[in-house]
């Protein structure tokens, strides 16, 4: 009977370090270890409701809360920006529940949680990047049923995904997938890298850093360990290409080697700024 086991414990439900109760953390941890052992494979877990809404990073938050240390330095970004609504909210939550230090400097962070971007600055083997994931299933685009996509992964049957890309080329002369670009991980599993732009996909390949992906609403966790092959799906005569910023530079720091946000000015013209605000600040300093 469970009652006795619980009565014998002395856990305090209120004010626990890092918010989540022990059971939730352990569930996430077990899933993370499996995820790392099978790179790119989506491990199911019993995602808990968080005080932030589904779709606002609950998967990433659960991962971070399961491993956070009091001496961690945490950076949270949303679309590359440290000051975005969602990032600010999540940081407040970590400060309150785990009393960690917060930074905007990629180099100083031990754990970075992100939505839709990977920082420009190269991350090291002492850092972990936690990515928030809305759609963990790369094959959902071509198959709505979870039972079917699971079978496709089991059999490494990715023919329909390839066909999808091929049809794009035939119809549009281009692969239309802009972000969430499907990748093959460790030569086996096709993975959704989360809605990072294509610009960031090469950063996953043979990196020094551990990448953890959390999809709270869909109850999935997956990972790319360091030094792991991550290859975007491409054809020999139609290579994967990142976004084209040729001839453009950041109007703030002058960078020509970063992902640029396009800003519409009041006079109708366009100007560009670095999407990675921390990196941009650092270059200007």
């Amino acid at each position: 009977m469970r009652v006795r086991e619980w009565m014998d414990r002395d856990t305090a439900p209120k004010g626990t370090f890092a918010f989540l109760d022990d059971g939730a953390k352990k569930d996430v941890r077990r899933a993370l270890l499996k995820a790392v052992a099978i790179p790119g494979y989506q491990v199911p877990y019993g995602s808990r409701e968080m005080p932030l809404a589904r779709g606002w990073g609950t998967g990433g938050i659960q991962i971070t809360l399961s491993m956070l240390l009091p001496d961690d330095v945490v950076k949270v970004i949303d679309q590359g920006c440290d000051g975005s609504v969602n990032a600010v909210n999540i940081k407040k939550f970590y400060e309150r529940t785990a009393r960690v230090k917060i930074t905007t400097d990629t180099a100083l962070a031990s754990v970075i949680q992100t939505r839709h971007r990977i920082p420009e600055e190269k991350m090291t083997d002492r850092q972990i990047l936690v990515l928030q994931v809305p759609y963990p299933e790369a094959l959902r685009e071509v198959e709505p049923s979870e039972a079917q996509t699971r079978r496709m992964h089991a059999e490494a049957d990715y023919g329909r995904m390839w066909l999808h890309l091929y049809e794009d080329i035939v119809r549009f002369g281009e692969i239309r997938i802009a972000y969430r670009y499907p990748c093959t991980v460790n030569g086996r599993h096709v993975m959704d890298p989360s809605p990072i732009p294509r610009w960031d996909v090469p950063k996953l390949h043979m990196a020094d850093t551990l990448f953890l992906f959390g999809a709270g609403r869909e109850r999935r966790i997956y990972a790319v360990p360091p030094h792991t092959r991550v290859e975007p799906l491409e054809f020999d005569d139609h290579r994967f290409r990142v976004e084209d910023f040729s001839g453009k530079a950041c109007a703030r720091c002058g960078a020509t080697d970063t992902f640029l946000d396009e800003i519409l000015m009041p006079d109708g013209t366009r100007t560009h700024f670095c999407s990675d605000s921390g990196h941009c600040d650092k270059r200007r300093a």
């Binding site: 409701e49 809404a53 589904r54 779709g55 606002w56 609950t58 949303d78 679309q79 590359g80 920006c81 975005s84 609504v85 969602n86 939505r115 839709h116 971007r117 809305p134 549009f172 002369g173 281009e174 692969i175 239309r176 997938i177 802009a178 972000y179 809605p195 990072i196 732009p197 294509r198 610009w199 609403r217 976004e243 084209d244 992902f259 640029l260 946000d261 396009e262 999407s275």
Partner: peptide, 29 residues
């Protein structure tokens, strides 16, 4: 309801990076 309302609300979060990537594809096409 918790899942669907959360996800539907999340579209209010900024999506300009993804959108820029979309623009890049459209311009190329």
């Amino acid at each position: 309801g918790i899942e669907s309302m959360g996800f539907s609300n999340h579209w209010k979060l900024p999506h300009y990076v993804d959108f820029l990537s979309d623009l890049d594809r459209l311009r190329k096409a």
